[in-house]
Design a binder for these strands. Structure first.
Lengths: 159, 159
DNA sequence: GTTCATATACTCGGATATCGGATGTCCGAGTCTTACCGG
DNA sequence: CCGGTAAGACTCGGACATCCGATATCCGAGTATATGAAC
C-alpha cells in the first residue's frame, strides 16, 4: 500500500482540526509533515477528485474538507488514494494454459480462491468504512489538536 | 498485491488435489496454468521456506504439500508470498517536520490512524486465517479435482 | 479620501523525469535414472 | 544372468537482467491581493 494513504489521512485529520474557516495550502501541510510539496499536492488532488477535499485556487488558496468529518470514512480516503480496484485481482489463471483446454470444463462457478480472498477484503473494507474521521478525532488527545492549531496560526502570522 | 499470491494458492490447491504420492515439478504446474516456469519456481521456493511446501530435488523431483490441507490457512500462503510486514506501514510522519519540533509534544500515545488501519488489517488477516485449504477444496466442485488429476496423469504417461 | 486599473505574488493542476521493486530469465548444484560393462 | 559403475538427464536453488508503476519534480493557468494613479 502506498504511503500516500498515510499522508492523506493525516492531512484530513489536520484539516479537520484546523476547521473550515480558511483553506490550507499544500506548502503548509508539507512543511508540517516534512513531505515533498509537489507530490503531496498530487495526492491531495486525488482526494479532491473523490469529493473528500475542496480546493480553492489562487493566492490564499488551499484545501479544506468538502464534508463534515462524520461523513468521511477511512474507506473513502483509502479508495481515493489507492484507486477503486481491489488489492487481490483474480486473473483467472485456471482458465488459461493446458488446464483450460479440457473441452468438458466449464467455469460458470466462480473461482473459490477469488471468493475467499474477496471475503477477506470485504471484511477489511467494512472495518475501514465503519470508522469515520470523527472517530479518529475523538480518539486523539485534545492537546494534539490544540498544538496543531497553534502551530498553523503562528506560522500564518509570523510570515 | 502481487499476482504470486494467486499462483501460490492455485498451486497449493492443485497439489492438494493430486495427493502426496508423487511430487509435481514446476514445469508441469507452469504448463497447466500457462505461467513462466522459472518465475513460478521462485515463488514456490518462498512457500518452501515458509514450510508450506516440501521440495524434493533431482530427477522426478518437485513439490508437495508439507502439511495436510486442514493445517494450511490462506493467511499462511499470503504471508509466505507477500512477506511478513503489514500492508499499511505507519511511517510516523507526525513525528517529522515542523509539527514535531514543538518541545512540549510527546508521542507516547500511539497514532490513532495507525491503530485504525491496523484494526482493519487484523480483520483481513483473521478472515484469511479462518479459511484453510481444506475449506477451498470442499467448496470446489469434485469434477474439477477429477479433471485436474486426469490431466496430470495423462501428461505423465504421454511423455 | 475613494475608486479603479494594473502589476504581482501565490496556489492549484497536470505534464514530464527518475528510481525501486516486482517480474522475468539464466546457469550451477544435486540427485535419480538408466544404460553399459564386467564378472 | 546379475551387480556395479559411470554417464546422462532432469529438477531445485539462487544469481543476474528487464520493465512498469510509484515517487518526485517542474512549469503553466488562474485568482486574490497589494499598489499606484486618477478623480
Amino acid at each position: 500500500m502506498s504511503e500516500g494513504v498515510e499522508w492523506g489521512l493525516h492531512c484530513c485529520v489536520t484539516l479537520a482540526w484546523l476547521g473550515d474557516d480558511r483553506p490550507v495550502s499544500t506548502a503548509r501541510l508539507a512543511a508540517f509533515f516534512d513531505l515533498p510539496t509537489a507530490y503531496l499536492n498530487k495526492r491531495l488532488q486525488a482526494l479532491v477528485r473523490a469529493g473528500i477535499l475542496a480546493s480553492t485556487p489562487g493566492a490564499r488558496g488551499g484545501f479544506r474538507l468538502a464534508r463534515p468529518p462524520e461523513a468521511i470514512t477511512l474507506m473513502d480516503v483509502v479508495a481515493a488514494v489507492e484507486g477503486p480496484d481491489e488489492a487481490f485481482r483474480c486473473m483467472e489463471i485456471r482458465q488459461q494454459g493446458a488446464g483450460a483446454e479440457l473441452p468438458e470444463r466449464d467455469f460458470r462457478q466462480p473461482c473459490g480462491i477469488a471468493t475467499a480472498m474477496r471475503r477477506a477484503e470485504l471484511a477489511w473494507r467494512r472495518e475501514l468504512a465503519g470508522q469515520t474521521l470523527a472517530d479518529i478525532l475523538a480518539a486523539a488527545p485534545a492537546a494534539s489538536a490544540d498544538r496543531t492549531r497553534r502551530w498553523f496560526a503562528l506560522e500564518r502570522t509570523g510570515s
